[in-house]
């Protein structure tokens, strides 16, 4: 940690831009110090209070507002009333319960799922800078705080779980399209709902938003659909050698999935292509990173 500029939110600022793989040691240290504040990374924010994780948000998974209002558990006007009235005091969760809009159990189930999902997407990647701002709290307020160690174990376990289902991670983040016919197949309703929204443009995050579903659930279903040969990630801007897409799917249900199937990750199957788009994307990322300093 280094000293940093004072923040208008008060308190100290601590940065850790040196260790792109060091987010866990940093989090463990913050937990040991019983720190309170917000840990920001490329894909999300983790909120700590007294060293416990109280909330997390990520662009890869819908927020509580979407999760609770999509199915009508909470009316949108009821949600905004709670944010307006209890947001400044950081007690929105409590307000939702006290105003009879949902039970403590329902809020906890939904919030914990959202917390672990957002934490996964925020922490699973080793990329990008990590910052911690002391003294920042989220307006949802305390619901059911969890230890950093539990979040760490769960994040690691989830990555193993996904790899066991299907080792290719492209469907986690890239737009997805159908890869084979599902005629005659009976899919479980929750998986069918995901497949119905696969249109070649939506990503897992888009589908989660459309369904009002926790992001990790969609990622799991897409990996299962990919393993069954029904879905594949659309080619990125620079396409590697095309993957086989016969009616039998791409390695459906076999145990022979190897890194060579990851295409973009494997140098041997990549043509030596270098496009201006890549350079521009890299420059954009560099610019964003420099601005974030």
């Amino acid at each position: 940690m280094t000293a940093a500029v004072p923040l208008t939110t008060g308190g100290r600022t601590a940065d850790d831009r040196t260790a792109d793989t060091g987010v866990w040691p940093m989090l463990r240290r913050l937990a040991a110090e019983r720190a309170s504040g917000a840990l920001t990374r490329d894909h999300g924010v983790l909120y700590l209070h007294d060293g416990l994780v109280t909330h997390a948000e990520s662009s890869a998974t819908p927020g509580l507002d979407v999760l609770l209002t999509t199915g009508g558990t909470v009316r949108p006007e009821g949600w905004w009333e709670a944010v307006d009235k209890a947001g400044p005091a950081q007690r929105v969760g409590r307000f939702l319960i006290d105003s009879g809009q949902l039970s403590a159990g329902a809020l906890e189930l939904c919030h914990l799922g959202a917390l672990y999902d957002a934490a996964y997407f925020t922490l699973a990647s080793h990329d990008g800078p990590t910052r911690f701002r002391h003294g920042v709290a989220h307006w949802i307020g305390p619901v059911r705080p969890v230890p950093v160690t539990a979040v760490e174990r769960e994040t690691r376990r989830r990555r193993r779980l996904l790899d066991r289902i299907w080792r290719r991670s492209a469907t986690d983040t890239q737009p997805v399209r159908r890869a084979g016919s599902c005629d005659g197949l009976t899919l479980p309703p929750r998986r069918r709902a995901v497949l119905d929204r696969v249109d070649g443009e939506r990503t897992a995050a888009d589908i989660s938003l459309a369904l009002g579903r926790p992001g990790f659930h969609t990622v799991v279903e897409l990996r299962r659909l990919a393993a069954a040969g029904l879905v594949t990630a659309t080619a990125p801007t620079v396409s590697p050698a095309p993957l086989p897409e016969s009616g039998t799917g791409t390695g459906r249900g076999t145990g022979t999935v190897t890194e060579t199937e990851t295409g973009t990750r494997t140098a041997t199957v990549l043509p030596p292509v270098h496009s201006p788009d890549q350079d521009i994307a890299l420059l954009h990322r560099l610019k964003e990173a420099l601005e974030a300093l």
Partner: peptide, 9 residues
């Protein structure tokens, strides 16, 4: 557990 929001609990 049957919930009115999307879950699998």
């Amino acid at each position: 557990v049957r919930t009115t929001f999307d879950s699998s609990v």
